[in-house]
Nucleic acid binder design. Sequence first.
DNA 1: AATGTGACACAAT
DNA 2: TATTGTGCCACAT
Length: 107
Amino acid sequence: MSDNFFNKVYKVVEKIPFGRVTTYGAIAKYISSPKASRMVGWALNAYFKNKGFSIPAHRVVNRFGILTGKKYFEGKNTMKELLESEGIYVKKDKILDFNKHFWDPNI
DNA sequence: AATGTGACACAAT
DNA sequence: TATTGTGCCACAT
C-alpha cells in the first residue's frame, strides 16, 4: 500500500484512543513532515469526503486545543458533541484541560 | 510544469 | 492566548 502522506495521516488518526485528542502538528511531526501540518487537515478533509466519519477526525485539533475544523462536522453531531461524549469538554470551541487529554502519536 | 489552496505552526507585537 | 504576517508542504487542476 501506499506511503502517501494522506495514508499516513489516516493511519495515525485511526489510532487515537477514545477520550484522547491530538494535534495536526503532532501528526505532521510523527509522519516526518513537521512543517506539513496544514496538509494534515487537508488530508482529513479529503478522506472525509470519501469515507465520511470512518476516522475519528474530531479528535484532531490545532495546537491550542481549538476546534478549528468544526465547520466540517456539520451534521447531527457537532464536533463538540462528539468530544463531550468522550468526556472531553469544550468551551467556546476550545478543549478544557487540553494537555490532560493530549495524546502523542509516538506513544 | 506552474499556480492555487488549506481542518496549521510559529514569531513578533 | 489575540492578531497579524510569514513559512511551509503536498495535493488538485
